[in-house]
């Protein structure tokens, strides 16, 4: 029993080391790591996330008019975030979805339509489709933007991805 247990720990550590060697090693291992046991320790490296991501939504009404864009807000931080920071999970999820979508876009082959069945696309589409709406809408569309605080004052904003218009059921 003890030998098997030590063997498990040795194997787990060895795979953890291999996973840190390169992104390719990590991706290969994670393909088989269905339970998420292999860690990735490259916190904020090599390129740290210095962008803010934003999800904007607009709808197509039944009379064919497009609404203006509205941004889905980040959950606010509290002055006690150093001990209690419940909004960070939602905010981190926005960041993760955007990073995942950017990776999909970079790796898209000639069949660009595959993005529409990707996990990040479906995640955002499902999320924005279920948002409460003041007025009846027939279709919805989302826009993903990035922004970066300038070294001086102001913010640089750039579009990342515009979705198709999807029917609302």
């Amino acid at each position: 029993m003890a030998t098997i247990a030590v063997g498990i720990l040795v194997l787990w550590f060895a795979l953890s080391v291999v996973a840190q060697v390169s992104d390719r090693c990590l991706r290969t291992l994670r393909r088989y790591d269905v339970l998420g046991l292999i860690p990735a320790y490259n916190f904020f490296a090599p390129t740290p996330g210095t962008l803010d991501y934003h999800i904007l939504v607009r709808d197509l009404s039944s009379d064919g008019e497009l609404t203006g864009w509205r941004e889905l807000p980040y959950l606010p931080s509290t002055p006690w975030a150093f001990v209690w920071n419940p909004g960070r999970r939602h905010n981190k999820a926005i960041f993760d979805v955007m990073k995942d979508l950017a990776a999909w876009i970079n790796e898209l082959g000639p069949d660009k339509a595959s993005i529409y069945l990707s996990t990040p696309y479906l995640t955002v589409l499902d999320h924005v489709s279920a948002l409460p709406r003041a007025e009846a809408a027939t279709k919805t569309q989302f826009l993903l933007m990035s922004s970066r605080r300038r070294q001086g004052a102001g913010v640089d904003v750039a579009p990342v991805f515009l979705s198709a218009l999807h029917p609302l059921i």
Partner: peptide, 27 residues
Amino acid sequence: TAGLKKAASPVWRSGEALPGVLGTTIY
């Protein structure tokens, strides 16, 4: 791992990483 990957990164070595990260909404 975190240290060596940062050491290999021009963004970290130039000193731009910390102000960049601290300029974001979530961190």
